[in-house]
Nucleic acid binder design. Structure first.
Lengths: 243, 243
DNA sequence: GAGCGGCGTTGATTCAGATCAGAAAGGGCG
DNA sequence: CGCCCTTTCTGATCTGAATCAACGCCGCTC
């Protein structure tokens, strides 16, 4: 049960990124009414576990998470990272259970939106329905970009594209685009990009020596974005909502 | 207006796989009314081109297509193959233009569903809305599995998994699971799996020599599915769990 | 502040799959 | 049927990233 009901969608700084997008104030309260605000999830703890029943979609309020798909043989794939304003659980609507686990990368708070109520609202408010479909669609499109990244690009290109994608997402959140903190470990980045931790580490030092970035453990600064773009080989269209 | 109106959803053999799923007969006619049936697309021709404006979702009636994402630098990624009963264009709802091109792999017929009408119907019929969301969700989940395939698996594992996945999809369409025709070229398979056509070719002969499959150009027979399953999903250790 | 464990870096070596180069097999068409 | 063109197959070689192996660093706890 959520007792921790600080804030409302109306007052939330993310309302231009998150589910409320496009909802007129006269309708926003209806969404607000079904949103449950939860107490923060500590770093390393799961929001939901792969295989667990699906009942709600989640929106990240603060912090970040990774989504991890565990295969039968024990292999893991970090399918994405979720930042503030992004939705989690869209992949679970179909089967009714989560195909991935969501793990907090830092202390993270989320809003819970019970799916049955969301669906009802989608029936009533065309604008909301359309926006929700767009968010699902964006998820598909961004997964496709990531597929192209994993299928066609060198390690160097992948990391450059990943950093630029993060940068874009931070900027969309009103943060500076050239200086941010990596909440995920090298191993998580590596896994997500289909590489190894050693390769990521080597690339970070290579980029640093080339004067493209500055990095101290997890504090990152992008110095030469143009070169990074050139390396990435893609004029980016964002990599992923969940990149 | 579509003049080529052969058949209706009600009579279509795919109605248990396609958009009509879960719609009671009393509502099916409403869907039927907005579906436009097109004349077949010849092999190699596009259904829609990357970058073109999005107006409709398409359902494959017969035949098959590949979806291709073209990057700025000219590299292509085959993001998927669409078989009968599957939807195309879901990734375009967000930006309003197609992020991929859809190319027919053989003579292929599709049904066109104008998205504005689909959305209206989604507002009116909860069952339809929920099913459509499930189809979008499934797309996301399956892209995530593919991500795991590209991120973590060897060439051998990728191809085995791909063949088994095709097999499953054919079976769901009432076809035999162990004998089918590959409508896509080796190059398409290779690209989709993040490999080269030479590797695919070598793997086919390897699988043949191991007695796992029989293959004559594009006519495939899966002989030892158990072994294919074993190949598709073994080895590797989990990766560090937290943060 | 000594010891410890998780993360990150660096170096040496290996190997899966890419690349390069042809040969063979179809397949459409005059 | 014979020609041409595309697709597929096979072999030889190369290479980017994985793997294997230490080691340093930082933040803990005791």
């Amino acid at each position: 049960m959520s007792i921790h009901a600080s804030g409302s969608c109306d007052q939330c700084s993310l309302k231009l990124l998150c589910l409320p997008v496009g909802l007129p104030d006269t309708e926003l309260w209806q969404l607000d009414e079904i949103v449950q605000r939860r107490r923060p999830i500590p770093k390393g703890k799961v929001l939901f576990r792969m295989g667990s029943p699906f009942a709600s979609v989640f929106a990240v309020r603060t912090g970040s998470l990774k989504t991890v798909l565990l295969s039968d043989d024990g292999t893991e794939q970090v399918t994405g990272f979720a930042l503030a304003g992004e939705l989690l659980g869209l992949d679970a609507i179909n089967h009714g259970e989560h195909p991935v686990s969501a793990v907090a990368l830092e202390s993270t708070s989320v809003c819970e939106i019970p799916f049955d109520k969301l669906d009802t609202l989608a029936g009533q408010l065309p604008g909301f329905r359309q926006h929700f479909m767009r968010m699902m669609s964006r998820e598909i499109a961004s997964d496709e970009s990531l597929l192209a990244l994993l299928g066609q690009r060198s390690a160097e290109q992948r990391l450059a594209a990943f950093l630029l994608s993060l940068s874009t997402r931070f900027r969309a959140r009103g943060l500076v685009a050239d200086r941010f903190c990596l909440s995920m470990s090298r191993a998580d980045i590596a896994n997500h990009l289909g590489l190894t931790q050693e390769t990521i580490s080597r690339l970070f030092t290579q980029f640093r020596k080339q004067g493209l970035i500055e990095i101290h453990t997890r504090d990152l600064r992008l110095i030469d974005m143009d070169s990074l773009h050139r390396i990435a080989g893609i004029r980016f269209e964002p990599l992923s909502q969940t990149a």
